[in-house]
Protein backbone atom coordinates (compact mmCIF):
# COMPACT_ATOMS: atom_id res chain seq x y z
CA UNK A 1 0.00 0.00 0.00
CA UNK A 2 1.29 3.38 -0.96
CA UNK A 3 -0.87 5.59 1.21
CA UNK A 4 -1.64 5.39 4.84
CA UNK A 5 -3.55 7.43 7.37
CA UNK A 6 -1.56 9.77 9.49
CA UNK A 7 -4.19 12.06 10.91
CA UNK A 8 -7.00 9.71 11.85
CA UNK A 9 -5.18 9.06 15.06
CA UNK A 10 -2.83 11.67 16.39
CA UNK A 11 -0.13 9.01 16.45
CA UNK A 12 1.09 7.99 13.02
CA UNK A 13 0.16 4.33 12.99
CA UNK A 14 3.14 2.27 11.88
CA UNK A 15 2.31 -0.79 9.84
CA UNK A 16 5.21 -2.74 11.28
CA UNK A 17 6.68 -2.76 14.74
CA UNK A 18 8.59 0.44 15.53
CA UNK A 19 12.13 0.35 14.19
CA UNK A 20 14.79 -0.65 16.71
CA UNK A 21 16.58 2.05 18.69
CA UNK A 22 19.95 0.35 18.35
CA UNK A 23 21.90 -1.89 16.01
CA UNK A 24 23.24 -1.29 12.50
CA UNK A 25 19.87 -0.39 10.95
CA UNK A 26 19.30 2.22 13.65
CA UNK A 27 22.82 3.59 13.25
CA UNK A 28 22.30 4.00 9.52
CA UNK A 29 19.00 5.79 9.97
CA UNK A 30 20.45 8.02 12.68
CA UNK A 31 23.36 8.95 10.43
CA UNK A 32 20.93 9.82 7.64
CA UNK A 33 18.78 11.86 10.04
CA UNK A 34 21.76 13.77 11.42
CA UNK A 35 23.14 14.40 7.95
CA UNK A 36 19.80 15.87 6.94
CA UNK A 37 19.89 18.23 9.94
CA UNK A 38 23.49 19.15 9.22
CA UNK A 39 22.45 20.11 5.67
CA UNK A 40 19.94 22.53 7.25
CA UNK A 41 16.90 20.53 6.14
CA UNK A 42 13.77 20.43 8.28
CA UNK A 43 12.44 17.23 9.80
CA UNK A 44 8.75 16.62 9.06
CA UNK A 45 6.24 14.61 11.15
CA UNK A 46 6.28 11.53 8.93
CA UNK A 47 10.09 11.33 8.78
CA UNK A 48 12.00 8.80 10.78
CA UNK A 49 13.41 10.36 13.96
CA UNK A 50 15.16 9.01 17.04
CA UNK A 51 12.75 8.52 19.93
CA UNK A 52 14.86 10.89 21.98
CA UNK A 53 14.35 13.64 19.39
CA UNK A 54 10.58 13.08 19.54
CA UNK A 55 10.65 13.01 23.33
CA UNK A 56 12.68 16.20 23.65
CA UNK A 57 10.46 18.02 21.20
CA UNK A 58 7.27 16.95 22.92
CA UNK A 59 8.78 18.09 26.21
CA UNK A 60 9.86 21.47 24.84
CA UNK A 61 6.84 22.27 22.68
CA UNK A 62 4.30 21.25 25.30
CA UNK A 63 6.10 23.31 27.95
CA UNK A 64 6.12 26.19 25.56
CA UNK A 65 2.38 25.77 24.88
CA UNK A 66 1.59 25.53 28.59
CA UNK A 67 3.61 28.70 29.17
CA UNK A 68 1.48 30.58 26.66
CA UNK A 69 -1.74 29.37 28.26
CA UNK A 70 -0.69 29.97 31.86
CA UNK A 71 0.90 33.22 30.70
CA UNK A 72 -2.56 34.52 29.80
CA UNK A 73 -3.41 34.73 33.50
CA UNK A 74 -1.01 37.28 35.07
CA UNK A 75 -1.76 39.84 32.36
CA UNK A 76 -5.37 38.82 31.80
CA UNK A 77 -6.01 39.81 35.39
CA UNK A 78 -5.52 43.44 34.32
CA UNK A 79 -7.89 43.43 31.34
CA UNK A 80 -10.83 44.55 33.54
CA UNK A 81 -8.74 47.40 34.95
CA UNK A 82 -6.94 48.67 31.84
CA UNK A 83 -6.86 52.46 32.24
CA UNK A 84 -7.96 53.54 28.73
CA UNK A 85 -10.16 51.97 26.06
CA UNK A 86 -7.16 51.71 23.77
CA UNK A 87 -5.07 49.90 26.39
CA UNK A 88 -8.01 47.62 27.10
CA UNK A 89 -8.35 46.67 23.43
CA UNK A 90 -4.60 46.15 23.08
CA UNK A 91 -4.41 43.97 26.16
CA UNK A 92 -7.35 41.79 25.12
CA UNK A 93 -5.73 41.37 21.70
CA UNK A 94 -2.40 40.53 23.26
CA UNK A 95 -3.68 37.95 25.71
CA UNK A 96 -5.82 36.52 22.90
CA UNK A 97 -2.67 36.10 20.80
CA UNK A 98 -1.09 34.15 23.64
CA UNK A 99 -4.04 31.78 23.57
CA UNK A 100 -3.61 31.57 19.81
CA UNK A 101 0.08 30.78 20.23
CA UNK A 102 -0.74 28.08 22.75
CA UNK A 103 -3.19 26.61 20.25
CA UNK A 104 -0.57 26.57 17.45
CA UNK A 105 2.04 25.03 19.73
CA UNK A 106 -0.24 22.29 21.05
CA UNK A 107 -0.97 21.48 17.43
CA UNK A 108 2.74 21.33 16.58
CA UNK A 109 3.25 18.94 19.49
CA UNK A 110 0.29 16.84 18.35
CA UNK A 111 2.15 16.05 15.13
CA UNK A 112 4.59 14.10 17.31
CA UNK A 113 2.00 11.66 18.56
CA UNK A 114 0.54 13.17 21.71
CA UNK A 115 -2.96 14.66 21.96
CA UNK A 116 -3.75 18.13 23.24
CA UNK A 117 -6.02 16.52 25.78
CA UNK A 118 -3.14 14.46 27.17
CA UNK A 119 -0.94 17.53 27.41
CA UNK A 120 -3.62 19.57 29.16
CA UNK A 121 -4.40 16.73 31.56
CA UNK A 122 -0.70 16.57 32.42
CA UNK A 123 -0.62 20.30 33.05
CA UNK A 124 -3.71 20.25 35.26
CA UNK A 125 -2.41 17.24 37.17
CA UNK A 126 0.72 19.26 38.00
CA UNK A 127 2.89 16.87 35.98
CA UNK A 128 3.97 19.29 33.28
CA UNK A 129 6.25 22.28 33.53
CA UNK A 130 5.76 25.77 32.20
CA UNK A 131 7.96 28.84 32.32
CA UNK A 132 8.72 29.86 35.90
CA UNK A 133 8.15 33.52 35.12
CA UNK A 134 4.37 33.13 35.11
CA UNK A 135 4.41 32.12 38.75
CA UNK A 136 5.29 35.67 39.75
CA UNK A 137 2.52 38.09 40.74
CA UNK A 138 1.34 41.19 38.89
CA UNK A 139 0.29 43.54 41.69
CA UNK A 140 0.06 46.76 39.61
CA UNK A 141 -0.79 47.97 36.12
CA UNK A 142 2.92 48.65 35.62
CA UNK A 143 3.56 44.91 35.79
CA UNK A 144 1.66 44.58 32.52
CA UNK A 145 4.07 47.06 30.95
CA UNK A 146 7.10 45.31 32.48
CA UNK A 147 5.93 41.94 31.17
CA UNK A 148 5.19 43.48 27.78
CA UNK A 149 8.72 44.78 27.44
CA UNK A 150 10.95 42.41 29.42
CA UNK A 151 9.18 39.07 29.34
CA UNK A 152 7.95 39.40 25.78
CA UNK A 153 11.34 40.76 24.81
CA UNK A 154 13.03 37.73 26.33
CA UNK A 155 10.46 35.45 24.69
CA UNK A 156 11.18 36.90 21.27
CA UNK A 157 14.95 36.47 21.65
CA UNK A 158 14.25 32.85 22.50
CA UNK A 159 11.64 32.29 19.81
CA UNK A 160 13.66 33.84 16.98
CA UNK A 161 16.21 31.16 17.78
CA UNK A 162 13.56 28.43 17.89
CA UNK A 163 12.23 29.52 14.49
CA UNK A 164 15.58 28.31 13.10
CA UNK A 165 15.13 24.88 14.66
CA UNK A 166 15.10 21.60 12.78
CA UNK A 167 11.53 20.40 13.38
CA UNK A 168 9.32 21.77 10.59
CA UNK A 169 5.98 22.17 12.43
CA UNK A 170 7.61 23.85 15.44
CA UNK A 171 9.72 26.19 13.29
CA UNK A 172 6.65 27.14 11.21
CA UNK A 173 4.60 27.88 14.33
CA UNK A 174 7.47 29.98 15.65
CA UNK A 175 7.67 32.07 12.50
CA UNK A 176 4.05 33.02 12.81
CA UNK A 177 4.32 33.58 16.54
CA UNK A 178 7.39 35.82 16.23
CA UNK A 179 5.51 38.00 13.81
CA UNK A 180 2.71 38.53 16.31
CA UNK A 181 5.13 38.91 19.21
CA UNK A 182 6.69 41.95 17.59
CA UNK A 183 3.32 43.65 18.17
CA UNK A 184 3.47 42.55 21.81
CA UNK A 185 6.83 44.16 22.42
CA UNK A 186 5.75 47.36 20.69
CA UNK A 187 2.67 47.65 22.85
CA UNK A 188 4.67 46.72 25.95
CA UNK A 189 7.30 49.35 25.23
CA UNK A 190 4.56 51.89 24.51
CA UNK A 191 2.87 51.25 27.88
CA UNK A 192 6.30 51.20 29.53
CA UNK A 193 7.27 54.58 28.08
CA UNK A 194 3.89 56.06 29.03
CA UNK A 195 4.57 55.24 32.68
CA UNK A 196 8.31 55.98 32.66
CA UNK A 197 7.66 59.44 31.22
CA UNK A 198 4.55 60.05 33.32
CA UNK A 199 4.02 61.47 36.81
CA UNK A 200 6.49 60.67 39.62
CA UNK A 201 3.96 58.17 40.97
CA UNK A 202 3.74 56.41 37.61
CA UNK A 203 7.54 56.36 37.27
CA UNK A 204 7.87 54.85 40.70
CA UNK A 205 5.28 52.22 39.84
CA UNK A 206 7.24 51.38 36.68
CA UNK A 207 10.54 51.19 38.55
CA UNK A 208 9.08 48.80 41.10
CA UNK A 209 7.72 46.59 38.34
CA UNK A 210 11.15 46.54 36.64
CA UNK A 211 12.64 45.48 39.97
CA UNK A 212 10.15 42.63 40.13
CA UNK A 213 10.54 41.44 36.53
CA UNK A 214 14.24 41.82 35.70
CA UNK A 215 15.38 38.53 37.19
CA UNK A 216 12.35 36.52 36.08
CA UNK A 217 13.11 37.76 32.54
CA UNK A 218 16.66 36.36 32.88
CA UNK A 219 15.20 33.09 34.20
CA UNK A 220 13.03 32.72 31.13
CA UNK A 221 16.01 31.33 29.21
CA UNK A 222 16.30 28.42 31.59
CA UNK A 223 19.13 27.20 33.81
CA UNK A 224 22.77 28.16 33.12
CA UNK A 225 24.52 26.05 30.50
CA UNK A 226 26.61 24.33 33.18
CA UNK A 227 23.39 22.93 34.74
CA UNK A 228 21.34 22.40 31.62
CA UNK A 229 21.26 18.67 31.09
CA UNK A 230 19.44 18.83 27.79
CA UNK A 231 21.51 21.45 25.97
CA UNK A 232 24.14 19.32 24.17
CA UNK A 233 21.55 16.98 22.63
CA UNK A 234 19.23 19.86 21.76
CA UNK A 235 22.04 21.69 19.98
CA UNK A 236 23.23 18.63 18.08
CA UNK A 237 19.80 18.06 16.62
CA UNK A 238 19.20 21.76 16.13
CA UNK A 239 16.12 21.74 18.34
CA UNK A 240 17.92 24.75 19.76
CA UNK A 241 20.56 26.69 17.88
CA UNK A 242 21.95 28.75 20.77
CA UNK A 243 22.57 27.98 24.43
CA UNK A 244 20.60 29.44 27.33
CA UNK A 245 23.53 31.63 28.38
CA UNK A 246 24.08 32.95 24.85
CA UNK A 247 20.43 33.94 24.61
CA UNK A 248 20.49 35.53 28.06
CA UNK A 249 23.44 37.68 27.03
CA UNK A 250 21.68 38.70 23.82
CA UNK A 251 18.63 39.76 25.83
CA UNK A 252 20.60 41.87 28.32
CA UNK A 253 22.53 43.55 25.51
CA UNK A 254 19.29 44.51 23.78
CA UNK A 255 16.97 45.35 26.65
CA UNK A 256 19.11 46.78 29.47
CA UNK A 257 19.77 49.97 27.45
CA UNK A 258 16.03 50.38 26.76
CA UNK A 259 15.33 50.52 30.50
CA UNK A 260 18.36 52.63 31.42
CA UNK A 261 17.75 55.15 28.66
CA UNK A 262 14.55 56.24 30.44
CA UNK A 263 16.47 56.95 33.65
CA UNK A 264 15.14 53.85 35.38
CA UNK A 265 17.47 51.47 37.15
CA UNK A 266 18.00 47.73 36.94
CA UNK A 267 18.31 45.92 40.28
CA UNK A 268 21.83 44.64 39.60
CA UNK A 269 24.85 46.43 41.11
CA UNK A 270 27.14 44.51 38.74
CA UNK A 271 25.40 45.57 35.57
CA UNK A 272 27.74 47.53 33.32
CA UNK A 273 28.77 47.78 29.70
CA UNK A 274 32.13 46.26 28.86
CA UNK A 275 33.54 48.16 25.88
CA UNK A 276 36.18 45.49 25.35
CA UNK A 277 33.72 42.67 24.75
CA UNK A 278 30.94 44.91 23.46
CA UNK A 279 28.57 43.19 25.88
CA UNK A 280 26.83 44.03 29.12
CA UNK A 281 28.00 42.25 32.25
CA UNK A 282 25.29 41.21 34.65
CA UNK A 283 24.56 39.09 37.71
CA UNK A 284 22.87 35.77 37.34
CA UNK A 285 19.45 35.27 38.88
CA UNK A 286 19.07 33.34 42.10
CA UNK A 287 19.11 29.80 40.76
CA UNK A 288 18.05 28.34 44.09
CA UNK A 289 14.86 30.31 43.75
CA UNK A 290 14.52 29.23 40.13
CA UNK A 291 14.57 25.53 41.06
CA UNK A 292 12.22 26.14 43.95
CA UNK A 293 9.67 27.86 41.71
CA UNK A 294 10.04 25.14 39.03
CA UNK A 295 9.29 22.53 41.66
CA UNK A 296 6.03 24.32 42.36
CA UNK A 297 6.90 26.52 45.27
CA UNK A 298 6.61 29.94 43.61
CA UNK A 299 4.47 32.85 44.73
CA UNK A 300 1.62 32.00 42.33
CA UNK A 301 1.94 28.35 41.23
CA UNK A 302 -1.11 27.26 43.19
CA UNK A 303 -3.20 30.23 42.06
CA UNK A 304 -2.34 29.72 38.38
CA UNK A 305 -3.13 26.00 38.45
CA UNK A 306 -6.35 26.59 40.37
CA UNK A 307 -7.49 29.07 37.72
CA UNK A 308 -6.70 26.64 34.88
CA UNK A 309 -8.42 23.74 36.63
CA UNK A 310 -11.50 25.81 37.35
CA UNK A 311 -11.81 26.89 33.72
CA UNK A 312 -11.33 23.30 32.61
CA UNK A 313 -13.89 21.89 35.03
CA UNK A 314 -16.46 24.62 34.42
CA UNK A 315 -16.08 24.17 30.69
CA UNK A 316 -16.44 20.42 30.71
CA UNK A 317 -20.20 20.43 30.18
CA UNK A 318 -19.75 22.69 27.16
CA UNK A 319 -17.18 20.45 25.52
CA UNK A 320 -19.29 17.38 26.22
CA UNK A 321 -22.48 19.02 24.96
CA UNK A 322 -20.97 19.98 21.63
CA UNK A 323 -19.42 16.57 21.17
CA UNK A 324 -22.80 14.98 21.91
CA UNK A 325 -24.52 17.34 19.51
CA UNK A 326 -22.04 16.54 16.76
CA UNK A 327 -22.70 12.85 17.28
CA UNK A 328 -26.47 13.44 16.85
CA UNK A 329 -26.06 15.15 13.52
CA UNK A 330 -25.96 13.13 10.37
CA UNK A 331 -22.65 14.46 9.37
CA UNK A 332 -21.89 14.16 5.71
CA UNK A 333 -18.78 16.28 6.11
CA UNK A 334 -18.60 19.12 3.64
CA UNK A 335 -21.39 21.48 2.75
CA UNK A 336 -20.55 21.35 -0.92
CA UNK A 337 -19.88 25.06 -0.84
CA UNK A 338 -16.13 24.95 -0.99
CA UNK A 339 -16.19 26.88 -4.23
CA UNK A 340 -18.40 29.57 -2.72
CA UNK A 341 -16.60 32.23 -0.75
CA UNK A 342 -18.24 32.97 2.54
CA UNK A 343 -19.20 31.10 5.65
Amino acid sequence: MLMYRIHGQAVPVPEQAPPPQEGPEYEARLAEFEARIARGEKIEPTDWMPEEYRRQLIRMISQHAHSEIVGMLPEGKWIPHAPTLRRKLILIAKVQDEGGHGQLLYRAAETLGITREEMIEALLAGKAKYSVVFNYPTPTWADVAAIGLLIDGAAVVNQLMLAQGSYGPYARAMKRICYEESFHIKQGYDAFVALATGTPAQRQMMQEAVNRWWYPALMLFGPPDRDSVHTPTLLRWRIKTKTNDELRQEFVDQYAPMVLRLGLTIPDPNLRYNPETGHWQFSEPDWEEFWRVIRGDGPCNAERMAARRRAHEEGRWVREALAAKAAQRTNGGGNGRYAVAGL
Binding site: I79, V95, E314
Partner: peptide, 30 residues
Amino acid sequence: HRDSEWVGHAPILEADIAMASIAQDEIGHA
Protein backbone atom coordinates in the same frame (compact mmCIF):
# COMPACT_ATOMS: atom_id res chain seq x y z
CA HIS B 1 -16.00 44.24 29.28
CA ARG B 2 -18.09 41.29 30.44
CA ASP B 3 -17.03 39.21 27.42
CA SER B 4 -13.39 40.04 28.07
CA GLU B 5 -13.71 38.47 31.53
CA TRP B 6 -13.62 35.10 29.74
CA VAL B 7 -10.17 35.68 28.29
CA GLY B 8 -8.02 32.90 29.73
CA HIS B 9 -11.01 31.11 31.29
CA ALA B 10 -13.25 29.86 28.46
CA PRO B 11 -14.29 26.18 28.10
CA ILE B 12 -11.83 25.45 25.28
CA LEU B 13 -8.94 27.32 23.73
CA GLU B 14 -10.64 28.01 20.40
CA ALA B 15 -13.71 29.43 22.17
CA ASP B 16 -11.48 31.62 24.33
CA ILE B 17 -9.90 33.11 21.22
CA ALA B 18 -13.26 33.73 19.55
CA MET B 19 -14.75 35.38 22.64
CA ALA B 20 -11.74 37.70 22.89
CA SER B 21 -12.44 38.90 19.35
CA ILE B 22 -16.06 39.56 20.15
CA ALA B 23 -15.05 41.56 23.23
CA GLN B 24 -12.72 43.66 21.09
CA ASP B 25 -15.41 44.23 18.48
CA GLU B 26 -17.94 45.41 21.07
CA ILE B 27 -15.49 47.82 22.68
CA GLY B 28 -14.48 49.01 19.22
CA HIS B 29 -18.12 49.77 18.44
CA ALA B 30 -18.44 51.64 21.73
